[in-house]
Simulated assay, not measured.
Amino acid sequence: MRAVWSGSITFGLVNVPVKAYSATKGHDVALHQVHDADGGRIRYQRRCEVCGKKVDYEHIDKAYEDGEQTVVLTDEDFESLPEAQNDEIEVVQFVPSDQIDPITLGKSYFLEPQGKSPKSYLLLRQALEDTDRTAVVTFSLRQKTRLGVLRVQDRILVLQSMRWADELREVDFPAARSRAKIGAKEKKLAAALVDQFASDFTPEEFVDTYQVELRQLIDAKLEQGEALDTEATFGERGDASDGGDTGEDAEVIDLMQALKSSLDKKRGGRRTAAKGAGSTSGSKTSRSKTSGSKTSRSKASGTKKTGAKKSDSSGEKPAKSAKSGAASGEKSGSRRRKSA
């Protein structure tokens, strides 16, 4: 990675030398524009309206126009601003982390400790972790003064830019202030649906499907050329709209039906998964039962064989042995009664 900024964090009299690196990167497929008639590359040229000449970027300045006059600002003018020379990330507040509205957050930067000893870096990191607070900071980057926050992620200090208060729009949507009644059944179904989807966030499981399909389309066109059949590549897309009634009553009915259908779909997926796991264990159990029945049959057959051998050696049939045993039992019982 290439550092985009170097300077130091200051809080009080403590100075923490750091380098900043972009924490994110794009993954979109790189595309350029071409002429649809002949495929020629479209290039943008910077031309002066006065002389009509093509102008290189190094000869372009910025300007401000107030409607009557135009003020030209050169690179030297921007560099002369006092804040442009600021190479410090100044901590101005330590605030509770839950007071930072996510809508204000922008681009993130990893901060690498510099200098001979990272002790001050480690101290600031430990202070943020122990107090469970976020540091609000100001810093300059690319000729702009910026508001930001410092937080800890995986033992690294992260600088995240913020929007200024006057950059946030104020909105008031009438529909959001609606007093439409939400029934108890709807609340219950919605809560059940939330419970069905409840899990820990695993960002690795999510994929930018559009970029995957775009890459698939490009690869198919590289292989097949303009004769590509997109329906054969992606399949036909069905129409999601199914008509139906419109209006407030229809919306309520559709909402209830949508909640129920969503729950049924989610539960059905879980049943299928559980059934698949159960069938595997069930087959093992059935096999063990089968083997057990074979063992019991073998034991039974072994007993029969042993009994047959015993009856053969005594020369008597099993039925007679049972009768003689019963008779002897009756005789012994009569003897006991007499003695009593």
Rank of each mutant, 00 (worst) to 15 (best):
L141Q: 02
R179Y: 02
F197G: 03
R179F: 07
E112V: 13
S279D: 15
K320D: 02
V95L: 15
Q85S: 15
L141H: 08
L193D: 07
K284H: 10
A326C: 03
P318L: 04
D200C: 11
P113T: 13
T134H: 10
F139R: 10
I156F: 04
Q160W: 04
Q160M: 13
E316C: 02
S313N: 14
Q196G: 01
A322I: 05
A227T: 05
G247Y: 13
K320E: 04
E226N: 06
V29N: 10
S161Q: 14
I253C: 08
D38R: 05
H35T: 07
G325F: 09
V136C: 10
E231A: 10
G244S: 13
K185C: 09
L81M: 07
P318M: 09
A319P: 00
K323E: 02
E83P: 08
V71L: 15
G225S: 01
V14G: 05
F173T: 08
S262P: 01
S321N: 08
Y21G: 05
A326G: 04
E49H: 11
R151G: 07
E49I: 11
D229M: 11
L141M: 10
Y109I: 04
I60N: 04
D38S: 03
V149P: 09
S314K: 07
K53H: 01
L111Y: 01
A84F: 00
F234W: 12
K107R: 15
I182G: 05
E167A: 14
S262A: 14
G39P: 04
A20Q: 09
K309N: 14
T134M: 06
G282L: 13
E213Y: 00
Q126E: 07
A37L: 10
L159K: 09
R237P: 03
R151H: 09
E205N: 08
R125C: 02
G238H: 12
D130Y: 06
K188E: 00
V34F: 09
P318E: 00
E170K: 15
R47D: 05
V136I: 10
Q160A: 05
Q69G: 03
I42W: 01
P17N: 13
A127L: 14
F139Q: 01
Q216M: 14
E205R: 08
K275I: 12
L214Y: 04
G315V: 07
K305N: 06
E248L: 11
R163W: 01
D36S: 09
E49C: 01
Y44V: 08
S279G: 07
T306C: 11
